[in-house]
Design a protein around this nucleic acid. Sequence first.
DNA 1: AATCCGGGGTA
DNA 2: TACCCAGGATT
Length: 355
Amino acid sequence: MIRKHDDFATRLLRWFDVSGRHDLPWQHPRTPYRVWLSEIMLQQTQVKTAAPYFERFVAALPTLRDLAQAPLDDVLALWSGLGYYARARNLHAAAIRCVELHGGELPRDLDALTALPGVGRSTAAAIASQAWGDRHAILDGNVKRVLSRYHGVSGYPGLPAIEKRLWQLAEQHVTGAPDARMPDYTQAQMDLGATLCTRSDPSCVLCPLQDDCVARVDGRVAELPTPKPGKTPPQKYAHVLWAEDAQGRILMLRRPPTGIWASLWTLPQADDEPLARDWFERHLSGDYAKAEALSPIDHAFSHYRLQLQPLRWHGTRLRARIGDNDALRWVAREELGSLGIPAPIRRLLETRTET
DNA sequence: AATCCGGGGTA
DNA sequence: TACCCAGGATT
């Protein structure tokens, strides 16, 4: 096969050496544990957002064994505000499994890595290639975007047929990377997609692949990758009960381990106002009618929108037969920081903290 | 293979 | 507001 240029990997690495990101927190030192943690945090999350969480997390739990031994609540508290909390629960479960099955280390084997909860094909490949320099192709959002453009692949990359084609191309390109440079090759693909081959307004004139990028040559850069087909998510409503006792402590509820905001601490929630009253009457003593209705909170999930109407009371007490327990407890304001709390609920509680 | 699931930041 | 970001799990 005759090539007009050096191959994909060679050009990409030459660009990376000059213009790649070499000072990300998880690169110094680049240990398997830190690489793994960073890959999980970076799932569906941008570097800028994840970086401060990463630093805080490794400071609190420096090793995989520390993570395995930590209570889940501590892990969720470190994750609080980062979103996609199943990642934190999977991370914790995976650490425990590594202690049980792999001597407290991450396994250097793609199938064993993929078997860990929260680790799929691309994440396993990213870990193995960066932590040990093993030769594996990755296919994250960045690589999908780069390859869609470079090869002119039309169709939403989330579709199985398109994704299969992109995996084929990724596997093809990875053969061109030098043995000693697998960690850099993996990082280089992500850097190219994140800093240069961006979704909107990419810097094609600086791109090492511009000469034979199909999208560039055909003037289709703005149309690729094909965007996700749109759909209007349903709007849902709920009331949240913000009850405080005489000491100003807040009644918090631990959500079940599955579903939205799994295992996180939130305010008690009811699907409508009569159910909110019902919950209040069953659990609290006080005057329901004294509720202060605060301004509603709008929160968007990927598959529906949720509007929360907060109702607030002061000086309430739990009914005697309910009592404090594992899933329902009074929380002092100073304790809020140590609990895993969804971002909109935390914002609600902290912006109204002085009233 | 198709479908489901889910927080937050940004343009 | 629409969109999507270093995807994975379930069916």
